[in-house]
Nucleic acid binder design. Structure first.
Lengths: 343, 343
DNA sequence: CTGAAAGCGCTTACAG
DNA sequence: CTGAAAGCGCTTACAG
């Protein structure tokens, strides 16, 4: 294998200086159009590609974004939150569209993401996904801010205004889900999902749920709220706890689709029909939601758009432009589990 | 924000030369142990990180792997093959464990991956996922080989021995699925999935299916094979075509779980019960499989292990070590859709 | 064990 | 419009 072509090789072939080659390849108007085209043609013919390390070193940027997916480490990869996986798709595409590369990593044991990515010049900015637990992770965020890291975090609004967060309006999502259930005539609506400050997103969904209830002059019954984190198994358990409590209920709103699927399994096992006996509404609209049985009515977060906004926001931040926290609207996808349509 | 520390800053603080700092940070035994530790301590204290672009430029490698997920472009990210997503998880972890970074990208329009990744020094090697269609893509693979690219491709064995492919033994997978169905007393077993050479993986599954049939002295009935590609909708259509054909059958083996889920939906819609009337076995064991209703009996590919092997293989190739094609064993996960367990 | 120096392949002020 | 030259921040042969 003959060794890689450099700009000097191109220069030699084109009979110009290396500087001119460099300019021509960046399509600089300083270079005579004809010369420019000739050089570009030669470069293409020789399969020449600018050495990324050299150009990055010189310009002191990397044209790369790092995506950090923060989840509790498990041995089982199938446990990765399917919602993040959808985001990954749109983030990857949006990054490519902007001419950047994407470095992907799962939660790092590392204590210092800033050093790992920006100081090493591996990435110009960081996108944090699933960084939900502001209590446990507050310290890490502090470090990022302190070092002036360019980063966006997906999730609930952060009380520190220096943190650029982008997320769906979880409060609104919880509100429309419960509003829908109320419109179907249900009054005793259970909520399955952690409502503590360790899960700010779930908590906001819960708060929206409560607000919808209140607006209909219904008191939220805390006996109808059961903690669950974002897995099918946890939803299964929470539904069982709810059933065991013998507190009557007509509908369940879950903080995620995974919880909903687990809850439905628990209900079925006890002979409770969904939606005939109990209506269920989930949250996320992960791909599985439409294949579930019954197909899940759920609150959809527009991952396509979210990915674009996330990427655009870090890039703006990198360019020193003004950026601000954003809350994206959610929408309700009505399928069968709520009983609005019986197929 | 004070500008980034360089090795020269560390050298100044430590009272040694920059070369010594560089050696100390790479933990070279050439440097006096005490000095080495002192320098490392200072570097840590100053949050110093070696500039990746500079070191890569100097050493002419990138310590980065590129993962290319090749799928037909869709606007809907949810369509990304869930199987690849599981692989992504294990590949990411395996890469990190080896001290490499991972660049992720979806199918490129680009004509020359070699130039895009290796010539630009962005990555030392490439992992190709979902590069199933050897007919349409043969040309691209030729280019990669011609340029001596370091790459592995996930999938069926390739007839060009220069292509390093790693994949599950699809033939064996198809065999055990059908063998299981036969052991449950079924004889008329339909196959849903493309069996042409455009889908070498599906085709091998089909061939394994046929072999199991033959071993039981059953002729494969081509009227029981219907093409389907890897989506729920396609499975739905294929099952409808099968039902419309009025050719009797007792069981269905599908080339993927997504196809199985679509097929089950079609069956249900016509009042056909699974597994009471028709037994179904899928392929992949994607996360959804266990949540499906009924829970899918399916052929499991060990994505955890596969990811590790894939990463290890490119790295070996990069280091110039001997590597060879590998076929990983699959295993059958018996759940409810086959009728072996009725819950 | 340590230092001075070359050089990886670019980009970009500076001079013409 | 073009070229000669400096320099980005490292690593590593070379010399001591």
């Amino acid at each position: 294998m003959t060794s890689k072509a450099t700009s000097i090789d191109i220069a030699y072939r084109a009979g110009v200086s290396q500087s001119t080659v460099s300019r021509a390849l960046r399509n600089s108007p300083l270079v005579n159009l004809e010369t420019r085209q000739r050089i570009q043609a030669i470069a293409k013919e020789m399969n020449y590609k600018v050495d990324k390390n050299a150009s990055n070193l010189r310009t002191q940027n990397s044209l790369t974004l790092a995506l950090l997916i923060c989840e509790d480490p498990t041995n089982d990869d199938s446990m990765i939150n399917p919602f993040f996986l959808s985001m990954l798709g749109s983030i990857t595409r949006a990054t490519a569209r902007q001419g950047y590369d994407l470095l992907v990593s799962f939660q790092q044991l590392s204590s210092d993401w800033h050093a790992d990515y920006e100081d090493s010049n591996k990435a110009d900015g960081i996108i944090l996904l699933g960084y939900g637990d502001y209590v446990d992770y507050a310290h890490k965020l502090e470090t990022l801010i302190e070092k002036n890291t360019h980063f966006v975090i997906w999730g609930a609004e952060h009380n520190n205004k220096a943190v650029l967060s982008i997320g769906c309006d979880n409060h609104q999502g919880g509100y429309i889900a419960t509003e829908h259930l109320l419109s179907l005539g249900h009054k005793k609506i259970a909520f399955l999902g952690d409502s503590s400050s360790h899960s700010p997103e779930f908590r906001d969904r819960y708060l929206g749920h409560v607000e919808a209830l209140n607006k209909a002059d219904i008191q939220a019954d805390e006996q109808l709220q059961h903690d669950a984190f974002n897995t099918e198994a946890s939803g299964y358990e929470a539904a069982n706890a709810l059933l065991d409590s013998s507190v009557p209920f007509e509908a369940i709103f879950t903080a995620s689709d995974l919880i909903a699927i687990g809850a439905i399994r628990a209900l079925k096992k006890r002979g409770v029909l969904v939606p005939e006996h109990i209506a269920v509404v989930g949250y996320d609209d992960i791909p599985v939601a439409s294949f579930a049985n019954p197909a899940l009515t759920t609150v959809k977060q527009d991952t396509q758009f979210a990915g674009e906004i996330l990427v655009e926001s870090v890039l703006k931040q990198i360019r020193g432009e003004e950026v601000s926290q954003q809350l994206l609207k959610t929408s309700l996808v009505v399928r069968n589990s709520c009983g609005a349509n019986i197929d």
